[in-house]
């Protein structure tokens, strides 16, 4: 029995190691392959390159507008996150700390949105935006992102504000500080971890967002990184320049990976906090 238990534990540990090794080896394989020629890849997929083909990187960088896609992504995601935080934070603060007529109903309405798949409102929203000329614009997309991020962001921030001590706010009132001042100078700094968590969550999920970007953007000069990457993938399948595509994959994922390595703790807690914090 004890032997069996030990064996089970070792097997489980081995599984974890194998699971992680798969990811690590996979990425090393991609890094190596991105510096090979197509012929070398066909001859031996696991072999090393004889001479690093930096050309793969140069050609993908110039022939595809990855740098353009990159800047578009940075612009639209940063703008959206700022909008989201500005719009959601005061609302989450009030909803979590003040009881007023309809506060319950409004909270339920917002939380309800978390269970709505975007496919339900995709078409009506697209044509509303179309009718006011906001389709095929990064600003328009940022507003769409903002609107659709409201439910989770408000829910997440409410969890943080609800748990703040009331004493400080009370003291501020007694000292004659108005609600805006109390919010900005006292409660917001206290709730900052929640705001940062919400910002990280939205940044990561919007950085990878594909369906809405694909629907709301038409011109390739506006494409965000996921849409640009999608175009790259579709066209590469026809040209067969495989190792070049490996280089494209590296260019796109390495920044994510570097940022993730630097901030993994913050990112992991940012992405999972909503589920854990009640």
């Amino acid at each position: 029995m004890i032997f069996f238990k030990k064996l089970l534990k070792i097997l489980a540990k081995a599984f974890l190691v194998a699971w992680c090794l798969f990811s690590v080896l996979g990425f090393i394989w991609i890094l190596i392959t991105s510096l090979k020629t197509n012929r070398e890849l066909f001859k031996n997929a696991w072999g090393l390159f004889t001479e690093p083909q930096w050309d793969n990187y140069a050609s993908i960088w110039t022939s595809f507008k990855l740098s353009r896609n990159f800047l578009n992504s940075i612009y639209v995601v940063s703008l959206s996150v700022i909008e989201i935080i500005l719009v959601c934070t005061p609302a989450a603060y009030v909803l979590s700390r003040v009881k007023f007529f309809g506060s319950r109903a409004l909270t339920s309405l917002v939380v309800f949105g978390m269970g709505v798949p975007f496919q339900l409102l995709l078409i009506p929203l697209y044509f509303s935006m179309h009718s006011i000329g906001m389709v095929d614009s990064l600003f328009g997309l940022s507003i769409v992102y903002c609107a659709l991020s409201i439910p989770f962001t408000v829910f997440l921030e409410m969890g943080f504000f609800r748990n703040l001590p009331t004493a400080l706010a009370e003291a501020a009132y007694i000292d004659g500080s108005g609600p805006i001042k109390t919010f900005l100078l006292i409660m917001l700094p206290l709730g900052m971890p929640g705001v940062i968590t919400a910002a990280i969550f939205n940044f990561v999920s919007l950085w990878n967002e594909f369906l809405l970007a694909l629907t709301f953007l038409n011109s390739d000069t506006l494409f965000t990184l996921p849409v640009g990457l999608f175009g790259l993938q579709t066209s590469m399948q026809y040209t067969g320049k495989w190792t070049t595509m490996f280089a494209g994959f590296v260019i796109v994922t390495v920044p994510t990976m570097v940022i993730y390595m630097l901030l993994s703790r913050k990112i992991i807690s940012g992405l999972t906090m909503g589920a854990i914090k009640e």
């Binding site: 609302a91 309405l109 917002v110 769409v144 609107a147 439910p151």
Partner: peptide, 24 residues
């Protein structure tokens, strides 16, 4: 103040989330 704090979120949410969901 309550309404000032809530207005931007509620306006965007109702116009761009709830309304399109119902219109669907």
């Amino acid at each position: 103040m309550v309404w000032l704090f809530l207005f931007p979120m509620t306006a965007i949410y109702v116009l761009m989330f709830i309304f399109p969901s119902l219109r669907a």
